[in-house]
Design a protein around this nucleic acid. Sequence first.
DNA 1: CTGAAAGCGCTTACAG
DNA 2: CTGAAAGCGCTTACAG
Lengths: 340, 340
Amino acid sequence: MATIKDIAKRAGVSTSTVSLVINNKGYVSPETRQKVLKAIEELNYKPLYPARKLATGKTGNIGFIIWEAHFSEVEMFYSQIFLGMEYAARDTDYYILLTTVKEDFDPKSDLPRFLKYRDVDGVALAGRVPHSLIFYLEEQGIPFVLVDYCIPRKNFNCVLIDNFNGAYQAVEHLIKSGRRKIAFIGGSYVHPSIKERYRGYKEALIDNGVISEGDSNYLKKYSYLEEAETSRIIGERGAEELLNQSDPPDAIFACNDTTAMGVISAVKKLNLEIPRDISIVGFDNIPSSVFDSPKLSTVDVPKFSLGKEAFRLLLEAIEEPLGPPQTRIVAVNFIKRESC
Amino acid sequence: MATIKDIAKRAGVSTSTVSLVINNKGYVSPETRQKVLKAIEELNYKPLYPARKLATGKTGNIGFIIWEAHFSEVEMFYSQIFLGMEYAARDTDYYILLTTVKEDFDPKSDLPRFLKYRDVDGVALAGRVPHSLIFYLEEQGIPFVLVDYCIPRKNFNCVLIDNFNGAYQAVEHLIKSGRRKIAFIGGSYVHPSIKERYRGYKEALIDNGVISEGDSNYLKKYSYLEEAETSRIIGERGAEELLNQSDPPDAIFACNDTTAMGVISAVKKLNLEIPRDISIVGFDNIPSSVFDSPKLSTVDVPKFSLGKEAFRLLLEAIEEPLGPPQTRIVAVNFIKRESC
DNA sequence: CTGAAAGCGCTTACAG
DNA sequence: CTGAAAGCGCTTACAG
């Protein structure tokens, strides 16, 4: 493999000059630059990372951390975010190190290796992750970005999706299609995303005159909120409870597709027909929502863009460690399919 | 951060000695070793990777390559393999670099960065990947291992699951439960795994006296083989065709769970009851097979173990690049659920 | 605008 | 069994 010396010799310059053109630093006369570039081309030269890393102190790595249960989940939400980052990283010199942490993570003993040994320049955390991890990063001054997650009242770099607008759009669609008794089913209510979706749900109801500002009866009657990791089960339980009351809903907005799947299976058990008797809308646009019957109307979350944006933001944070934390919002789109 | 010099000074030895104990090389007197270890402990020292890498020429990275369509698939098959590798890697100094390649991969232009720049010591390839990639690795002398895939007649390191036995067990179970007209539905027939499953299917039939050695009529009548990426659609088409003929099967062994899902939906359309009228068995034990109704009987593939084993094998291949290629088989287990 | 030289933190023959 | 020294391939003040 060619080294920087070979290039220097071939171009008839010093290694310093070669280094300067490689890194686009300082001033190099156009002719010299050309010569160097030519030599690089001819020898098919590529700087050896470890050497550069040793000299600069940068690791060239970025960590990607996800809660293990999420990564092992049925749907590909987080893998797609990772892939978005990986694609963005391909235009750079960074490698991405993917790893998982358990829910009962303890910074003392369970630190991912690349954190323990400082082998990353920054880290992205996707979805809900242990707060102790986040605080550890903050404390250590390691640049990081939260993806599809944030901690209320804490000012961290994060890239979020427009949960509020997604929910708003979905519910507005239900209203415009004639539904008036629209229920919300959600688990993990403390999760900021779910909260935002609930807020979008309410606002759409209010803005479209279905309920008035302070109408807590409607909300109480048609909201099923359970503090637990969102899942099919919650959808099933919620739908059963809501549909078995008097004056049941004619539409259900589930806080995510997985929950919506549970709703559908409960609705089917009750021999209701979708969407004739009841409309159902989910959120996330997970792959299987296309296969199920009826095909689920939902809100598409552009996971890939989420990852790309996260990478960009993280890069900025690495380059400017002292800059103020930023929040970036990625837009979402309602997708009408068969379930409403 | 403490360096090797700090340790040397504190332990009152040279850096060479420190290096020797860190790497467990050469002979160091027990007392000196103790002193060094103590200093390392006290200063919480960890060798800086890039420096070590520069000195040794090792990168400390392992590549994990997967076909992009697989990674974006609904089910978590490959993520679990990755996770198995990542867990195994945690006991070592290796980091794993996950990336995807497209199906129309061209070694000239689409080489993953870590290959182009030689930033890995070895690579694992999971599932079906472009052969041109495999041949590139072979040519370049980069140690690699194929996971859940192999190329017939080529002698490469690979870790496979016991497809034959899995299929055999499943079909034998169907026979023992009284079924005699057992169909096979498979896509991607050239895929070695599917071939092996088909072979297991046949052998079980023969060994249990359902058909005689040369009975091609039975096989012709009850086999639906379509050369295409396996999918629900193939399951649906296959089931329709097989069930609409005279003397239809009373059991279907689908080459994988995704296909089995298609079979189930076709069977339901025909108003047959599972397992009363027909038994169905899949292969892979994907997460959703537990949720669907009826719950799918299937063959569990220990993805996690597959990844762990792959890592071990790859490590051996890296340490002994000239050793003969090995094939390792990971056992599978039939899981009886509701569909048979 | 460019070159000589020191330094990043390790490992590894080589002496002793 | 242990130490002094060279070397891995870069980058970066510092002179000029």
